[in-house]
Every structure is written in structure tokens, then in C-alpha cells.
Design a protein around this nucleic acid. Structure first.
Lengths: 122, 122
DNA sequence: CTTACGCTTCTACAATACTGGAACTATGAG
DNA sequence: CTCATAGTTCCAGTATTGTAGAAGCGTAAG
């Protein structure tokens, strides 16, 4: 993933409403959700929702397909994977390997264990 | 990492100038870089740079320390790690495991190999 | 003390983004 | 065909963000 696209994806997710929408799409899995359903769940006017959905589509974070008069939106997981790849390699490949970071990430989801790395957290 | 903070970090990195600054900080490693040096490298006016640096600090993506009359900025790797953790678990923990994603990310950095997953890329 | 330097804060302006009502388009039911 | 439903696009209006000159604040050297 190029930096230019990374900026676009990061900016797309760096907005509360949009990240909320995206999380709902993830929850819904590959089956996706119709726009109206998302609007109802998030209590966002359809026009506003549509605006953000176009944004997510443009960043390749969401896909849409028509089913009757519904428009079903679903998350594009590969874009997130690529973003993570970008963060791991282009940004943070210097001080440690991706697997190490994955290890740290995995550790974070567990209750708690004595921190292994010595880095403080400002 | 809470969603609220994730939005902040994503937004902080979702801006070209700021991502550029951050990448330079990463390149510089733990030693960091003085503000003026960053401004010179990126050819950004000091006032503009300072604005973005405060932004990065607020998102806990950068730290600063004074050394004489220099202000040295350095990247806070753990925040990126946590962001990745958030993306892996809170966002994308549904369809596959973190290690799988790490595998995909690792694969992406190599020249090219026949795509293993069947997912299309819209 | 005075000056130079490095950086931040102040300030104003331009650009961009977010929001949501209203009008419009497409699909399906009666 | 007519009507209802689902979404998108249009169009303000408002808010937020990005940019950068100018002034201000420390620090250190002369």
C-alpha cells in the first residue's frame, strides 16, 4: 500500500461516525447490511450516512451491491489488512518485526501480564 | 485501546503532512529529531510543523524532550502497536485471527506470490 | 545586559469536512 | 399507472482543520 492510499484509509477511519459505520459492517460480516439498517442502528439521517458510505467506498473500506431496492454494504477486510501491513512495514518496520508486534497485540487482549518490553508510555 | 482514542490516532495519521512527520520520526528511531531538522527536511514552515507536532503529541504518537534550546521529538511506537491491536481485535477480530492477518501482511512485503485467499479486491 | 537562535503561541484566513432537509431516482407492490 | 419504499444527490449552513506570518518566550553565547 502506498502512503497516499494509507492517508486516505486512515482519514476515512479517523472520523467517529465513519468508524462506527465500519465497525457495524465488520460485525455484520460478509453478508453486510442495507443502508437503512445502518442508519437506523446509528440513528444517523440517511443523507449523512450516505455521505460517509461514499467516503468508505472511495477508500475501498466498503463495498456495495444492490438487492432489490436495498443497497447492501459490506466491509472490505483486505484494505484493513493492507493498512496494518503498511503500518507494520513502511512505518514501524524499523525497530521490531511484525510478528513481535502481533505478539504484543495478542497479549494486549488478555487480562494482563507483566509488561515484557521496557518502554514507558508517556 | 478505546474507540475514542483510536479515532484520534487514526485522524492524526490520516493527514499527509502529519504522516510524513511521523515517518521521519520513525526513521530517526528512539534518538528522535529536533523540530527544526524536521521542518527543514519536509520544507514546512516551523509554525505549521509545530501545529502538527502538537497534534501528534496529543494523540500520543510523539513525545518531546528539551535538550538545550532544541526540542527533540521522537515517535511513540506503542501507540501504533495499540492501534494495530485495536484494528485486529475490535474491528477485524471477527473473520480471522490476528496471526493470519500478520501472515498476510508479511506476504505482502515480498515480491509477489499467487494470492492464496480467494477474496476479490473491488 | 544584549543578541541570536529554536521553537511555540497567537492570529487570521482559506480550504475542507460534516450535517441534514429537500428534491430526485430506482425498484417493487397493488 | 400510481403509490410507497430505499437511497442517492443537491444544496446550504456550520464547524473543523490546515496553513503560515508575526509576535512572544526561553536558552545560551558574546
Amino acid at each position: 500500500m502506498r502512503t497516499r492510499q494509507a492517508v486516505e484509509v486512515l482519514a476515512a477511519l479517523g472520523q467517529e461516525t465513519r468508524l462506527d459505520i465500519f465497525r457495524h459492517l465488520i460485525q455484520a460480516g460478509p453478508a453486510g447490511l442495507p443502508a437503512g439498517e445502518i442508519a437506523a442502528r446509528l440513528k444517523v439521517p440517511l443523507a449523512t450516512l450516505s455521505f460517509h458510505l461514499q467516503h468508505l467506498k472511495h477508500a475501498r473500506l466498503a463495498r456495495s451491491q444492490k438487492r432489490g431496492k436495498l443497497v447492501i454494504y459490506s466491509a472490505n477486510f483486505t484494505t484493513v489488512d493492507r493498512l496494518i501491513g503498511y503500518l507494520l512495514h513502511d512505518c514501524c518496520g524499523r525497530p521490531r518485526t511484525g510478528l513481535e508486534v502481533c505478539g504484543e497485540a495478542a497479549r494486549e487482549s488478555k487480562p494482563a501480564s507483566k509488561s515484557v518490553s521496557g518502554e514507558a508510555d508517556s
